[in-house]
């Protein structure tokens, strides 16, 4: 550490000398910055996950202690773990990088990238340690708190889940939301809506964690607090895990009719496979078997489906299109994306 500080001091001194001297040669480029520029240019040239992985590995091997290790950790977990399916190797290299890095911000990013890999291998890691290192330097933000709560609850780390969900609720206010986005121009109404959504996310995770910590009264109270604030997406499904966790708790409590009502929209109208499995379970608990489940699902889907709104937008040649005309009696997949 002392050597690092000395090096940093020397660099600062050289920088100052450079700034003061008119005859100074061009400012020396930090080798890591140069390597980062080169890396970004090279990685943008390939779509091949294997090639990207090699480039990231080379960068991480050279600069495991730098700030970019955090940003690369997520990409590495995705390409090496998800795309190439080499979960164990991806986790090992990230663990090595974590050990070599001392910056709490970067360590938190690396650990967050490692968590899904560790969970996939059946041993979800403890994010609390790294989060507490970061919390010693600055207060954790709502996204950080809720991400930990969310990951912990998904992987049955109930105490951590409950603690971080509880902490996230303290940041679920319009004031805290606005403080997180000082450069954006949110109205008071936007901030209030975002704060409500934060509350729902926190309460959903808190409820399910408490249920599993065998505090059913407190769990149901958390869900009930969230219900009036619940918001839905375009197809009417909750845009948070509230319905899913609330439905699972109702099912576990033996109220399968309430569970079905809570789980139906997410399970039937979206790609949420967990909600679908829970709905099937609730259906069996109510009807005795899943013999007619698919027919029932279809009838529910037809009754939940809404007519699509039409709109007018231009293509890249400047021609405008009315969506209704494009769909026109076809089965249509309407996909929203952005290029990266």
């Amino acid at each position: 550490m002392k050597r690092l500080l000395l090096a940093a001091g020397l660099i600062a001194l050289l920088g100052l000398m450079g700034a003061c001297s008119k005859e100074a040669p061009e400012e020396a480029v930090d080798p890591m910055e140069q390597a980062w520029t080169d890396f970004r240019a090279a990685v943008g040239e390939t779509d091949d996950s294997g090639e990207k992985v090699v480039m990231i590995e080379e960068f991480l091997a050279e600069y495991p202690e730098g700030e970019y290790a955090g940003m690369l950790a997520g990409a590495y977990a995705y390409y090496k773990g998800h795309d190439l399916g080499e979960t164990e190797a991806a986790l090992a290299l990230l663990a090595e990088t974590l050990d070599k890095n001392t910056d709490p911000e970067v360590r938190f990013q690396i650990a967050s990238a490692m968590f899904p890999l560790s969970a996939e291998l059946g041993e979800p890691m403890d994010l609390d340690v790294v989060a507490q290192e970061l919390a010693a330097t600055r207060p954790l933000t709502f996204p950080e708190l809720i991400d930990i709560a969310d990951m912990a609850v998904k992987h049955e780390q109930w105490e951590i889940g409950a603690a971080y969900a509880e902490a996230s609720l303290e940041m679920a206010t319009p004031e805290a939301f606005l403080a997180d986005y000082p450069d954006d121009d949110f109205t008071a109404e936007d901030a209030a809506a975002k704060a409500e959504r934060r509350q729902v996310m926190g309460l959903a995770n808190l409820g399910w964690a408490l249920w599993n910590l065998e505090q059913p009264g407190e769990a149901m109270a958390a869900f009930e607090r969230a219900m009036p604030l619940r918001s839905v997406n375009y197809v009417g499904a909750a845009d948070t895990p509230l319905d899913y966790y609330h439905g699972k708790a109702k099912l576990a409590a033996g109220d399968s009719a309430a569970a079905m009502e809570l789980l139906a929209t997410s399970a039937i109208m979206s790609s949420d496979q967990d909600a679908l499995a829970a709905l099937r379970e609730a259906y069996v608990a109510t009807e005795g078997s899943d013999e007619d489940f698919d027919d029932w699902m279809w009838s529910q889907r037809v009754s939940l489906a809404k007519d699509v709104d039409t709109f007018t937008l231009a293509d890249y040649e400047g021609n405008t299109h009315e969506f209704q005309d494009l769909a026109d009696g076809n089965v249509t997949l309407l996909a929203f994306w952005f290029p990266t």
């Binding site: 197809v235 979206s270 037809v302």
Partner: peptide
């Protein structure tokens, strides 16, 4: 979103 021939959002 997947839309059926009748213009209903089904998924």
């Amino acid at each position: 979103f997947l839309i059926d021939r009748e213009g209903r959002v089904m998924y």
